[in-house]
């Protein structure tokens, strides 16, 4: 149960204190348990086979059933931790979001990059993402921006040329396709 009290990221940084960690588990594991239950019933519609005792739905159903049980077990453990813990201070969630603002910023940029990739093409989308990403993460001085521009050109235009001319792999061309 102790891990429920001291949730840590891969770097060992505490991710929540008080009831925050157990509550996050209850929400995520609850959602997963509901999803896996729905998929379990959906898997029952998959066809059986005349040639084998297990059809195409048996193995997924077996896995999904165990997944539902595991998620419910984790939820029971986290519920106990939630009850045992005192309520956290007000504003903890917004403080956590503020601490992770750069991660969310990079994630938003990355999502925009991927969604625009087929439309803008690899070169333009990567150029924009690399410039915006480096600026967001601290390249603000003239020298920093100049280096960022060179890096952005090498890893967008340069990489595209390398893949197209050397490896004969065409990355998305987008507007210039």
């Amino acid at each position: 149960m102790s891990q429920a009290h001291t949730d840590r990221s891969s770097q060992g940084e505490p991710t929540a204190s008080g009831r925050g960690g157990p509550l996050a588990h209850l929400i995520v594991n609850g959602a997963l348990a509901a999803l896996f239950t729905a998929l379990f019933f959906r898997a029952q519609a998959l066809p059986a086979s005349m040639w084998e005792p297990l059809g195409s739905g048996s193995f997924p159903r077996l896995v999904l059933a165990v997944l539902v049980m595991l998620n419910l077990t984790i939820m029971v453990k986290e519920l106990r931790a939630f009850i045992a813990q005192p309520a956290g201070e007000r504003g903890q969630v917004s403080a956590w979001i503020w601490r992770h603002r750069l991660a969310f910023g990079v994630l938003s940029l990355f999502a925009a990059y991927i969604l625009l990739l087929p439309w803008l093409g690899f070169t333009l989308a990567s150029l924009g993402f690399l410039l915006a990403g480096q600026w967001l993460l601290g390249a603000r001085s003239f020298k920093g921006l100049a280096i960022a521009l060179v890096i952005a050109l090498v890893f967008s235009l340069g990489v595209d040329t390398l893949f197209r001319d050397v490896f004969i792999i065409s990355l998305p061309r987008g507007l210039f396709g």
Partner: peptide, 9 residues
């Protein structure tokens, strides 16, 4: 600031 965007690409 350099390595994260480059590796993501």
């Amino acid at each position: 600031s350099v390595i994260v965007p480059v590796v993501l690409v």
